[in-house]
Computed example of a mutant assay.
Amino acid sequence: MLNRPLLSVLPVAEWPLPPGDRLPCALLLITADGLVHSANTTAHEWFGAQSSAMAPLVHFLGVSEYDERAGELDAFVEGMRQSGQMRELRLALQRHTGERFSALLMGMPLVDPSGLYLGFDTMVLDLSRWQDREALVPYTHAEDLRARLESRTRSHAMAMRDIDAFTQILSHDLRGPLRQARGYLRLMREHTQRSHDVLQAEYTQSALVAIDGVNGMIDALLEFARLSRVPLELRFVPLAPLVQGVLAHLSRHAHAAMVDWRIDGRLPGVRGDPMLLSQAFSHLLDNALKFTRGVERPVIEVGWRDGADGKRVLHVHDNGVGFDRRASDKLFMLFQRQHHSLEFEGLGTGLALTRRIVERHGGGIRCESAPGQGCRVSFTLPPDRVGGTA
């Protein structure tokens, strides 16, 4: 095709398919008005159902007329019409199977002996079989967005598979040995009760407590994994009754009756999952209740304001023991405790789980505190955009 003289070509009507109809490249004959007159088998296999005879070239190649590549193809064709010279064009194309590839179009104008322009023939080469596709033809903006979306979808699916495998290990593989160890320790405890070995009984009980702690950590990890993939049941959620429900649940703690609860009666409505939001407020208020336990006049406040970006900014503020703000970067990590377990119970999971819930709702969370000056946790939630009032 590349060595064909311009003036010694066959008329379009007599143009035969070239030898080797199944060459690893698409061969097309294009008429003067831009229609595909004929094509080899490879071309039809690449471009599928839209690759019918007498279809416009852009349609044959699967390019929308609104795509920026359509303009490149028009300029490619017009350039051969005007110059009468061979031209090349590199662009990204897509097979009918959805596979994208880097293509090189090499076109040669066809003229009859009198010099009349008849059209051109072109070879479409798949360059991605030879070199890196991105180094050859850059993605269009739409292709780039689609490629990013597909990559993130694949990454998300892989992450979900990893989470499933992780939860399987936690739920079964790790708990099995712990159950066996706990069973043997119970037998040991019964033995020490009969032998009245006080020191051995103390060691046995400490080991049982440690196993309970590991089981608690496994439960927390499973809950953390669940919060990463549970579907959100989004709806209008009035926060005032939700917070009151959480407080009713916390009233079982004796210390709750001593707290000066300052709950803003005008708490807004938000768009969210009521079960998960209830869980988030439960973690925050339970922490506030726990860390104000040694305060003479404990005060816990729940309030809100409108954020600059239209989101609701909620806060839970207490006057408890607080913590060193230099450790705030680890505060929202699992199992990061700011106080010794002998002072305050718990595994250090509440804030980590709360952050996951807030982030699943598209919000952010931060904490301000200082030793002996209480703690203020602020977080954002999306406003209700469907119904309900603030």
Rank of each mutant, 00 (worst) to 15 (best):
G115V: 09
E99D: 14
M123D: 02
M123Y: 10
L116Y: 00
A75M: 11
G115R: 10
Q94C: 10
H96T: 13
T97R: 00
L91H: 04
E99M: 12
R100C: 15
G79L: 01
E99Q: 15
S102N: 11
L110R: 15
G115Y: 04
S83A: 14
S114P: 00
V111F: 01
E99I: 12
A75L: 13
R87A: 11
R100M: 14
M106E: 12
D112N: 15
D121K: 04
R87G: 07
P113N: 06
A103D: 10
A75P: 01
R90Y: 01
F101P: 07
T122V: 15
E78F: 01
G84L: 01
M108Q: 12
T122Y: 02
G79Y: 00
D112Y: 03
A103G: 13
S114K: 02
L110D: 06
G115F: 02
D121S: 10
L104Q: 12
L89R: 06
M123P: 00
L89W: 04
R95Q: 11
G98R: 05
M108T: 06
L93W: 03
Y117M: 13
E88W: 01
S102W: 02
M86F: 00
T122L: 15
R100P: 12
A92M: 15
D112E: 13
E78H: 05
T97S: 12
L105A: 09
L116H: 02
P109Q: 06
R90P: 04
P113L: 01
A92Y: 02
M86S: 15
Q82S: 13
F101A: 09
M80E: 04
R81D: 07
G84R: 03
L89C: 11
L118K: 03
G79R: 04
V111E: 06
F101N: 08
D112I: 10
S102Q: 07
Y117H: 15
E78V: 11
G107F: 09
Q94E: 12
L89P: 04
E78W: 01
Q85L: 13
G79N: 08
L104G: 08
P109M: 06
P109N: 08
D112F: 01
V77P: 00
S114N: 02
G119C: 06
L93M: 05
G84V: 05
R95A: 12
L110C: 13
M108V: 10
L104P: 10
V77Q: 13
L110N: 10
F120G: 10
Q82G: 12
S83F: 05
L91W: 02
M108H: 07
E99F: 05
T97H: 01
G84C: 05
R100F: 08
L91A: 08
G119A: 11
T97I: 02
M80P: 03
F76N: 14
D112M: 05
R81Q: 14
S83T: 15
P113D: 03
S83R: 09
L110K: 09
R100E: 15
L104H: 11
E99P: 03
L89E: 06
L116G: 02
Q85I: 03
R95G: 07
L105G: 09
M106Q: 14
E78D: 14
S114H: 00
E99T: 15
R90T: 13
G84P: 07
